[in-house]
Deep mutational scan, measured.
Amino acid sequence: NKFNKELQWATWEIFNLPNLNEEQVKAFIDSLRDDPSQSANLLAEAKKLNDAQA
């Protein structure tokens, strides 16, 4: 299933962003679980936040 692979990839990527704190990671993962179809958008937002906090 396409969404499942995207969800797994986005989850792994978010867990490995070095500049997000635990609460931010949890919030993004919760959002992914709530709406897996938004995984690409949520990953992009997480990466933006990660870069901003570098």
Rank of each mutant, 00 (worst) to 15 (best):
W12E: 07
K47L: 07
S37L: 06
N50D: 04
V25R: 11
N16G: 09
L49D: 01
N4A: 07
I14V: 05
Q24V: 03
L32W: 02
P18K: 12
E45M: 12
L42D: 00
S31P: 01
N16P: 00
Q8H: 05
F15T: 14
D51G: 06
E45W: 08
F15Y: 15
F28S: 00
L42S: 02
E13L: 14
I29Y: 04
F28D: 00
W12G: 05
Q53A: 07
A44S: 10
A10Y: 15
R33N: 15
S39K: 04
W12T: 08
A27G: 10
A27L: 09
D30P: 00
A52I: 11
L17E: 00
F15E: 14
N1L: 03
Q24G: 00
Q53W: 06
Q53G: 05
F3T: 11
E23G: 09
L17F: 05
S39F: 09
L17K: 00
A46V: 02
D51P: 01
F3S: 10
K5R: 04
Q53N: 06
E23H: 13
N50A: 03
S31H: 11
T11N: 03
N19E: 03
A46E: 01
Q53L: 13
A40E: 09
N19A: 07
T11E: 10
N21D: 09
N16I: 06
N16S: 09
S37A: 07
K47N: 05
A54G: 11
N50E: 01
L43H: 02
L32I: 08
I14E: 02
K26T: 09
E22R: 11
N41E: 11
L49H: 03
N41K: 13
A27W: 15
D51I: 09
D35G: 03
A40I: 10
A54R: 06
Q38N: 11
D30H: 14
F28G: 00
N1P: 13
N50H: 03
N4H: 13
E6F: 14
N16E: 05
L20G: 00
A44I: 13
Q8P: 02
Q24D: 03
N1H: 03
R33P: 01
N50T: 01
E22I: 14
Q53M: 11
S31Q: 14
S31T: 09
N19L: 04
W12D: 05
N41F: 14
F3P: 14
N41I: 12
P36Y: 04
N4L: 13
L32T: 02
K2E: 15
L42F: 08
D35V: 05
I29N: 02
N4T: 05
Q38S: 07
D34S: 12
N19W: 12
K47F: 09
A46G: 01
L20T: 00
I29K: 01
L20S: 00
T11M: 15
F28W: 03
E22A: 14
A27Y: 15
A52D: 09
N21G: 07
K26S: 09
E6D: 10
N50W: 01
N4S: 07
L42N: 01
D51V: 08
T11Q: 08
A54H: 07
Q24R: 01
F15W: 13
F15M: 15
K48E: 06
A10L: 08
E13Y: 15
Q24P: 00
L42G: 01
I29L: 10
D51T: 08
Q24K: 01
L32Y: 02
N1Y: 01
N1Q: 06
E22M: 15
E13A: 11
R33S: 10
L32M: 13
Q53E: 05
D51F: 12
E22Q: 12
F15S: 11
E22D: 14
L32D: 00
P36R: 02
